[in-house]
Amino acid sequence: MSTQTKVDKILAGHAFAKRDKIIPILQEIQEAEGYISQNAVVKVSRHLSMPASKIYGVATFYNQFRFKARGKYHIMVCRGTACHVKGSLSALRLVEDCLKIKAGDTTRDGLFSIEVVVCMGACGLAPVISLNGECHAKVTPEKLKNLVEELKLKETK
């Protein structure tokens, strides 16, 4: 199903929605597409008769929304309290440096994206990252670097 019709379908499901439905609509779009595209913002704005700037303003207020498509490899770095104490900040910096993007971004080749999450509920295994939903426990800088380099290598082959 193309991008267009997914958003249209979601909006059709909210036929007489008013502005109070903005967050559920955005959540559904993100669920379906993995992110909130510019096109989606314009469509939601027309559907709710609200300015696009307002939709974007509301969406950016919340950490849960992404504005770039996820990469093939989506890395989530936990920045919860336990992970923070165990050094998740340096883990995040390392991933950012390796991929030359910031959290919330996607590499230009569309392979990698980084997201910061607040807690994955695995505090006993801190620091934790997740790669496409698969958890990696007690990551060290070396482990992380190897993981990323392996993926990069795999893609260049």
Partner: peptide
């Protein structure tokens, strides 16, 4: 009644900007 600009992001990252 144009609303070309709005508050974007939150807290100390807030800026005034257009959509996207």
């Amino acid at each position: 009644n144009v609303s070309a600009i709005d508050f974007i992001h939150r807290g100390n990252k807030t800026v005034i900007g257009t959509a996207y």
